[in-house]
Structure formats: C-alpha cells, structure tokens
Amino acid sequence: MKISRRLLLGSVSALTILSVLGVKPGHAHMKVGSTQSDRKLIASMVRAMFPHDRFPDGPYLRTADAIIAKANGSTASALTLRAGLADLKSKSFENLGKSAATQYLKDIEGSPFFSLVHGTTVTGLYTDKEVFRILGYEEASYDKGGYINRGFNDLNWLPEPRIEEHPDLAAFLSGKPKQYASATKLNAS
C-alpha cells in the first residue's frame, strides 16, 4: 500500500483523496529535484526538522524520494519544490550549524515548501520499516499470534496493579454530584 505514504493528512482534501485513489491531476513533464545532490539536500532538511541521532541516512533519503515524488505529482507542487531547493542552496543549508538550520526552518514554517516537506515526512519517515525496527515497533501482530505470549504484560519495573473494579465504584457512580450552583456562576462570567 504505497499510496498511503503519500497521504498528506495535514491537508486531507479532494486533491489528497484523488492522489490516494491513484487519480493524478495534470503534472509537469520536467522532473524537479532529480539530482543526487538535490536528494541529499532535502534529506538534510528532513533530518534538521526531525533529528534522530539513531537513524542512519537511509530513512531520510527514502523520505526525500517520497517528497520529490509527491512534489512532481502536480505542476504547482513541482514549482514549490523548485523554489524551495533554490532557497536551500542559496542559504548553503547543508553547511548551517544546528541552531542556524533550526532558525531557517522556523523562518519558513507554514510556507508551501515547508508544509510539503513536513507533511510528507510525517507519513513517510515514520512509516519506514527501518525506522520501525530502530524505534522497537513490532508492526503487524495477528499473524504472530498477538502478544498474549510475546510480552503484552512483560513490564516489570512497577508492581502488578489491580484489574478488577474497586468495590466502592457502584456507590460512587450512583452518588450525587457536588455544589452545582457555583459552576453556573463561573461559566456565566
């Protein structure tokens, strides 16, 4: 289900749903961001935005590929990527230190280019199988028999808690609420 990665939830719209369903609006013939250096530049922007020391370059580069593919899905977003790349180059983004790179991202936050990169990363970087492994997420469980014998309750740094309801619960839930007059006053003010 590769299409799901392109689902930019931040702007679920007719356009997004069309792309989910595989119906593409008219797109540019010229592919923007096709060079290896463009790819690395975008990956460095994604890393600055979502820094994980434990992640190798692979997931960031695959996310960059998803961004480039998404951008080339329409003329408007291809132009957005083109302008964004030009600006990154003019600012020598790859050579900026951590705080300068963060400041640059803050300055462009909310722009179409930032949103393109951010939105695609949220659904791209964090659905990458290598990232799942690094984060310790075990993915599909049903075909492995669930977690009933694979650690659903293996936490051992806290005492075993009660699982039954407290004997006073029924009395508590059928009790009378307290002092309702003052809520009226508070909300009216």
């Binding site: 508590f172 839930l173 009790g175 609420p177 307290k178 002092q179 309702y180 007059a181 003052s182 809520a183 009226t184 508070l186 909300n187």
Partner: peptide, 11 residues
C-alpha cells in the same frame, strides 16, 4: 474524575 463537582471550575 467523572463526577460533576463545580469546585473544579467546570461542569
């Protein structure tokens, strides 16, 4: 926290 109690500042 389910029981209404106006002392909390909301209904």
């Amino acid at each position: 926290e389910v029981m209404h109690d106006a002392n909390r500042g909301f209904a």
